[in-house]
Design a protein around this nucleic acid. Structure first.
Length: 172
DNA sequence: GTATTGATCTTCT
DNA sequence: GAAGATCAATACA
């Protein structure tokens, strides 16, 4: 799913763009929030695939995941960066900056630009305010280790649109 | 260009 | 009390 979502278009209330960077987290993965079992925070990660899991990161930011797999499993894909295509003016107003490249280049920035917070946690991604359109054609992928984790460091489950200028960090 | 730090929520020890 | 799927501002090279 993390590979399939690169190149998709995500909109929240009409604001969004092309998904250029994702990371995979599954229930057997020590880096995953679901690894230690269900808690109040990660409850929506254990729902059936197709809904959102939104969590508070470092006490400051919100991060948005696409829940995958059957109910009870606890697998999800973190959306780390978008190439803005819709509603750039609203993103700039929310983010307080002008540079398109910095509007959604990171999971916390992405949520701020799209207005995502706990009120969207658990909502289905195929109904308003969300819209998720999968890519029509396969897209060139870059692969590498995930960012900002201390366990499962060697698992290469970060995926990006090869050559995109809107990544949170480049691939090598 | 890299390095450091403060913001302060949620979970686990 | 510590750590974490982060970001931005600041200080330096």
């Amino acid at each position: 799913m993390a590979r399939a979502l690169v190149g998709a278009t995500l909109l929240v209330d009409g604001v969004g763009g092309l998904v250029v960077e994702t990371e995979a987290y599954d229930h057997e993965d020590p880096a995953s929030h679901s690894f230690g079992g269900r808690t109040a925070r990660n409850a929506s990660m254990f729902r059936a695939g197709g809904c959102a899991y939104v969590y508070r990161s470092y006490g400051i930011h919100w991060c948005l995941n696409v829940v995958c797999g059957p109910a009870g499993e606890g697998s999800a894909v973190l959306l780390r960066a978008l190439e803005p295509t819709h509603g750039l003016d609203r993103m700039r107003a929310r983010r307080g900056i002008d540079e398109a490249r910095l509007l959604c280049s990171g999971p916390g920035r992405l949520c701020q630009a799209l207005g995502v917070d706990a009120s969207q946690d658990g909502l289905p991604l195929d109904a308003p305010p969300f819209a998720l359109i999968l890519p029509e054609r396969p897209v060139p992928l870059a692969t590498g280790p995930r960012i900002g984790i201390s366990k499962g460091v060697a698992t290469p489950w970060r995926f990006g649109l090869a050559g995109s200028r809107f990544l949170s960090r480049p691939f090598r």
